[in-house]
Every structure is written in structure tokens, then in C-alpha cells.
Amino acid sequence: MKAHLSNPVLMKEIKLRFRSPKSFVGILFYLAAMSLFVIGFMYIMTQDGSSGGYLNPGQSFMLFTMLTYIQLVLVLFITPGLTAGSISSEREKQTLNMLLTTSQSSFQIIIGKLLSSIAFLVLMLVSSLPLYSVVFLYGGVSPKQLLLLMFYFFLSTVAVGSLGVMFSTLIRKTIISMIATYGSVLALLAVTGFLSVFFASLSQGGASPFAYLFAAINPAVLTASLLAPDSGEFLHGMTGLRWPVWVTYLLFYLLMTVTSVFVSVKSLRVNMARGK
């Protein structure tokens, strides 16, 4: 049973990742950037003599919102860097052929690569939790909200990570795989927003499923809906549809993960039966 659960690629990747000083320097800079922001925000907000040297719940919520968006952007832009070279770099280093002739299944190799990157990102997310505790000090945000946001960050990380692994499997060069993955992240963050507004304007006040769909799969829109539940009304007004954003987001990102992993597994090894 233990042998079935163990994943040699995962163990090797974790060992290599955490042996490299680059990983810890990365976390250091990540936390330093977040800390600087928190300290800077608190400094500016408490400069005004009327504040009494502390943040009110409204300011605390604003800090939480800004922290969340910063973290969202950081996570979405760090994930491709960790996953988009997972298979193509093995190919470039000429280690892939030896890996592919072992008894490991394609699924084991792909999952090992994906989980090792996610493990590192989870460590980054968890290491940032003490910064969020500053918000709880002043109130305005519930722990449930934080947990929900962390879950969706995790989901987004897994989905974007799977996308990176898929591009890395399909594309031979790491640099092109990175461009494709970053392009996809940009499309999810910006292009979906633009398309949502575009389709909403086409519907001229009527129901627009496309406008809803593009809005619902945008990580920034989901974050807004989790931070301010009444933002659903705004989306309803714009698209004419009333359906929880988190459900659509969950389904879409789960589907993206499953599809990406499936494509990666199928294209990692050549199909020997196919005569070309």
C-alpha cells in the first residue's frame, strides 16, 4: 500500500526544490514584499491623529482586500514559473528519456511534478498567514472568509499549475511553454473581464450567459464576490443572470485541472501503437 502511494518524482522534486537556496530566497522576497505593504499601509493609516494609532474595522477590511489581491496576483504569476518548465526542462536537460523508460506511469510522473510545485506554493500561502493575523487584530474580517479565500487560491493554483504542466508536456521549449502559460493567466485575469463587458454591452440589458461566464471565471471577480457577497447583485445587473459565482468558478477550474492533467498524461509518452 505504501509503495502504491509513494511517488518517486514527487519525493525527488521536493528534495531538489527545498535543497536549493533559491526557493527560500523566493519565499523571503515574497514575505518581505507583503510585510512592507502591511507596514506601509498601517503607517499611512495611523499617521492621521484622529485614528488613535489603530485601524478601524473598515480600514482593516481594506487592508485585507488589498492583501488578498496582491496575493492573488503573486500566486497567479509565480505558479507558471514553477510548473511551465516541469517536463520541458527535463527534456532540455536530457533526463526525460531515462525517466520515461522507467516503470513509473505517466500519471505518476505528471502528478509528481504538479504536486511538488503546489507543495511549494502552499508553503508560500501558509507562510503568509501570520501577515493576515494583523487584520484579525483590528476586526472587520471573519476567519471563514479567509479560509474560503485560501481554498480558492489553492484551487486556482492547482488549475494554473496543471495548465503549466500541460504546456510543458506539449511544448518542447521551456521558454515557449512559459509564454503560453503566462498568456493563459493573463487571459483569465484580463481578457475574460474585457469579454464579459463586451458581451454584456451586446445584450443591451438582456440576459447574457457569455458575459456571466467570462465574469465568473475571472479570479478577480471571484475574489470580489467572496470579499463582498453583495457584489453578486452587480453581476446580476450586468449579465441578467443570478447564479453563484463560486459554483461556476469551482466547476470551471476543476474541469480545467482534470483536462490539463488528462492531456499531459496522454501526451507525455509517445503512442507506440500509432505508426507514423
Partner: peptide, 15 residues
């Protein structure tokens, strides 16, 4: 059944 040694191969750094 096979043990394969390619003509060109790389190794993992830090192992």
C-alpha cells in the same frame, strides 16, 4: 525488461 542508456543524457543537479 530493458535497461536503457542513451547516447546523450543529463543528470539532476543537487542530487
Amino acid at each position: 525488461l530493458i535497461g536503457y542508456m542513451p547516447d546523450f543524457f543529463g543528470v539532476y543537479d543537487q542530487l
